[in-house]
């Protein structure tokens, strides 16, 4: 066995004490800070739940068509949503979709600027990339528990955990996309006296959009992958049904809700991917 060189107990006690301290003294402040996020999630959830089901099916069908220009995809998406309704999963599907949308949109707002910053500074990148690795590989329960301690069980720790898990690919791909923009194009616009801002907004970001879109696609997928775990700490929706199914040994309940998650994943994966491809065509980058 490895020799007992030091007493790791002390370290653990110190960490636990620090967390306790944070919970007692900062709990309220942190909750206040996170409350806009909760409101955002609630608005989306309420919006989805109060919109008539046929309108949501129609909008998703229309989105699918607009992003792919294929009737088949559109019809498939609408059929899947209809099926989820038939199986009595409509409300849970809307809750899960709300969590995914809130987490994805927040990830975009946080992730794109960080990705852009990382692309501009090598030293910043060398700090951010390892942090992203940790965020993605650290088992989520490790930060779920302090999250629950800080915010109490509920939607806040659920959406925070979802964002932590879902934002890294977006940051990574934004950084990559911006750095991989054709050097010759950048040189050309520099030669015409474009400012850094003009280069970033007019050239780098538009040309990186297909890559950034791939990041958004991955972020939505990761967010959906978190819904079961998120439901353990108070997020409702399909994940909660899966948990209940497992708890009550009702295979059917777990299976159907699980298939519901898969259906959502397929729908949003196809829509975002098709949109990325259309973007690529629209930017006329296909032969690069």
């Amino acid at each position: 066995m490895f020799p007992d060189l030091m007493d790791s107990q002390n370290i653990r006690i110190a960490i636990d004490n620090a967390v306790d301290y944070m919970v007692i003294n900062w709990g309220d402040t942190l909750e206040a800070l996170a409350s806009p996020l909760l409101q955002f999630l609630n608005i989306i959830e309420r919006g989805l739940l109060t919109t008539p089901w046929w309108l949501i099916i129609f909008v998703l069908g229309a989105l699918a068509y607009l992003s792919s220009r294929k009737w088949t995809l559109s019809a498939g998406v609408m059929a899947m949503m209809f099926l989820l309704g038939l199986l009595d999963l409509w409300e849970d599907t809307m809750k899960t979709m709300a969590l995914m949308l809130a987490a994805t949109l927040t990830s975009i707002v946080i992730g794109m600027p960080i990705g852009i910053l990382a692309s501009h500074s090598k030293s910043l990148r060398s700090i951010i990339l390892p942090v992203l690795d940790v965020m993605q590989t650290m088992p989520s329960f490790v930060y779920l528990i302090p999250g629950v301690m800080l915010f109490g069980p509920g939607k806040i720790p659920a959406i925070l955990a979802t964002i932590i898990y879902a934002v890294p690919p977006l940051i990574r791909l934004t950084d990559l996309g911006i750095r991989l923009v054709d050097k010759q194009v950048i040189e050309a616009v520099e030669a015409f006296g474009a400012s850094d801002r003009q280069i970033l907004l007019g050239v780098r970001i538009p040309l990186a959009m297909p890559t950034i879109m791939a990041g958004i696609n991955q972020t939505t997928m990761m967010a959906l992958a978190m819904v079961v775990i998120a439901s353990m700490i108070g997020a409702g929706g399909l994940g909660y049904q899966v948990l209940q199914g497992i708890g009550r040994l009702e295979v059917s309940r777990g299976l159907l809700a699980g298939l519901g998650i898969v259906a959502l994943a397929i729908i949003f994966d196809r829509i975002t991917q098709a949109y990325g491809r259309r973007l690529q065509q629209h930017l006329h980058l296909e032969d690069k």
Binding site: D182, Q184, V185, E187, A188
Partner: peptide, 13 residues
């Protein structure tokens, strides 16, 4: 001054 490039350097979008 302005510049013309071997590989054109046009904005593809």
């Amino acid at each position: 001054l302005s510049m013309v490039f071997q590989r054109f350097g046009l904005l593809p979008h």
